[in-house]
Nucleic acid binder design. Structure first.
Lengths: 152, 152
DNA sequence: TGAAGTCTTTCATATTTATGCAAAATAGCT
DNA sequence: AGCTATTTTGCATAAATATGAAAGACTTCA
């Protein structure tokens, strides 16, 4: 399955880099030894329903589809509320303790959110470690999580 | 204020028509006697952070920004949960009874969601009337509202 | 295996969108 | 009003994206 694999890569790129043009996908995929043309990327984007979002800072970047993002956030919220035990931060890390068994699920939801400033996520049985890209990002993420926890 | 007014029109068009290209905005605005070029629309879209979404049916259409949509849905949900009394449907109408004073707020939130298949919304002190574009749409809207009401 | 059908990709290009720059409009001052 | 600064717009065009058509892969079935 060539196409699916490529689309998985595209998803991963979405969260790790700020992608402004379809050609960026082409270059980045080339770097991972996946050879495609812009035409294919255009079709992938249509397939995956990605959108090109005008960002507040003036540029543009590709992002998850609205609906999926909303759905994911919903699940994330529910999981958080269900399983949350405690959290702590240090440096660029946010460490969340959850009820046993919920770590992996929560971690993968956080990943699926493709938060701009999250560098990586890791979940074991009852702990989720989120590594942010900066201290500011850590703060922001904390607030996001708190917002999710405090209902709405 | 020329620009702001135009952007209001753009917002209204967003919910009423399926807009596929920036030129569509140009024509539709021309029809309302607002003269603009595609260049301006492009800048408006950047300003307003609208996105061009690949729709499930194969085409593309412009739509609200992700974040705003999420925020609006959140407020809508909260308002619904806070103020909801009862609802009824008939033909293409959904009539929601709410606690006194909440009608206008709820109506404007429903409008802000720019639901594809909602024709119009009207809220008095304690009632909101939503007029859909088709019977199917009415059913769908009902489900959406129920989903919002039943937590998540 | 090979023919037929389906799916995917590229190439070339049409279509659409973004933007530099100059002109026009608008807003602040005095 | 008159002048200056700021914002907004259009024009022309560059840049980015989408897509028809042909070629290549991959399936399936006999």
């Amino acid at each position: 399955m060539k196409k699916q694999e490529r689309q998985r890569y595209i998803k991963r790129l979405l969260s790790s880099k700020e992608i402004e043009r379809q050609e960026d996908f082409v270059s980045l995929l080339r770097a991972e030894n996946i050879d495609v043309t812009q035409a294919t990327i255009s079709r992938d984007i249509k397939d995956m329903q990605l959108v090109k979002v005008p960002s507040a800072t003036g540029g543009y970047h590709y992002s998850m589809p609205v609906q999926k993002k909303m759905d994911t956030e919903k699940k994330l919220k529910r999981t958080l509320k269900d399983a949350y035990v405690s959290y702590a931060t240090q440096d660029k890390f946010v460490l969340i303790k959850v009820l046993p068994g919920n770590g992996p699920a929560l971690a993968s939801l956080v990943e699926a959110m493709h938060y701009e400033h999250v560098f990586g996520t890791l979940g074991d049985d009852s702990t989720v470690l989120i590594i942010c890209k900066s201290l500011d990002a850590t703060l922001e993420l904390q607030q996001t999580l708190q917002r999710l926890l405090s209902d709405n």
